[in-house]
Design a protein around this nucleic acid. Structure first.
Lengths: 194, 194
DNA sequence: AAAAAACGTTGATCTAGATCAACGTTTCTG
DNA sequence: CAGAAACGTTGATCTAGATCAACGTTTTTT
């Protein structure tokens, strides 16, 4: 169960994890299973856990007054999921996160994460690098929503995360891209004609 | 000149910087002055430096085919500025960054930053925390552009970064918020009526 | 101090994409 | 396996905000 996480970390750091480190990681990352449609986090809660996706897929979204889901994040194997802002600042989250498929996660509490930070010096550095990568993603997406047309954003997604288009249905992709399912459907119909 | 940066760091870490650390920081962060309209970074370049703003203001933007500026970032005193993705991956940046006022920066090269990381253990952790904060900002802005109306985004900015509204003219704010200056002007006119 | 830029406003018009609605197909679920 | 969700498509209509244009005011440059 922890093998995926350990390989993931080994691929990101200079030296391999030793046995003691592996034991520590196994101790603080607890397995959690979510069946399809179960919540990992609900609006108003304070997030207790961060999660690493071993198997499955999740979506992160808000719900507006009219009940419409606005999807802001999609997560699959080897992605980190959660609302770190809520978790770090003990503030209520504005997001829902639920399992889009039956999902296996490894979750870690804030306290356990802090203890890892103090005991394993490379965790800060790994966290820094991963957080910066996430920054690059977010800045790109922000820029895309501000300057691109709906069609350009779809093309962009096909290049950046082609796996999402296989994995999630169109109305989910549409919302993630900030458009309606009708618009996405029409873009598709149009580009087939060409 | 370095005093602002040293205070900034002291406010973010558990213990104060000692003399040796201060000396190291002074050695790698070099002063740089930009006159209004001078570039810190231009599209196509590989970013060599990250910068910390001591005094002044900068804007980060792309320019589209029709020559229009699309502003994606505004930076004032005590903000970090640069394209870290370009700097870290040695890739050409898509952004322009220029001084919106006469500006004083402290800049650090990738190599010097890496040497700081290895010599001062708290740099990783500080970098991690700052990068996560930046993540929170970016996620909020992304969500805002996807779910809010133009008027809501303006109200949101008034709450989040009220200093920007004092500091930057309306057409800059409008672009930062992903709307035209005409739309921003009309929103203003409208909310005065109420 | 004159000329030129930069800035902000208002009006008229346009359009990308949203909304509303209906319907066929596929996939769950009891 | 039957009924109900979930999903995707197409058409008609609507609208928030963009675009285009003109003009007054303020700021900067020479």
């Amino acid at each position: 169960m922890h093998q995926g996480l350990i390989e993931y970390i080994n691929n990101k750091i200079a030296t391999k994890l030793n046995d003691s480190e592996i034991a520590q990681i196994k101790a603080v990352f607890k397995p959690k299973t979510l069946r399809k449609h179960q919540f990992f986090l609900e609006e108003g809660e304070v997030s207790k856990y961060g999660g690493f996706v071993i198997k499955g897929a999740l979506k992160q979204y808000t719900i507006d007054e009219s009940g419409k889901e606005n999807i802001i994040g999609l997560y699959v194997e080897n992605w980190w999921v959660g609302d770190r802002e809520s978790q770090m600042n003990n503030t209520p989250t504005p997001y829902y996160i639920d399992a889009f498929e039956n999902t296996e996660l490894l979750v870690v509490s804030k306290e356990d994460f802090v203890s890892l930070l103090s005991q394993m010096p490379f965790v800060s550095e790994l966290g820094r690098v991963l957080s910066e990568k996430r920054n690059f993603q977010l800045l790109r997406r922000l820029h895309a929503t501000q300057v691109m047309t709906a069609e350009q954003r779809l093309n962009d997604l096909e290049k950046t995360y082609p796996e999402f288009l296989q994995r999630f249905p169109q109305h989910i992709i549409a919302s993630y891209l900030g458009m309606t399912k009708e618009t996405l459907s029409r873009i598709r119909a149009n580009s087939l004609k060409k």
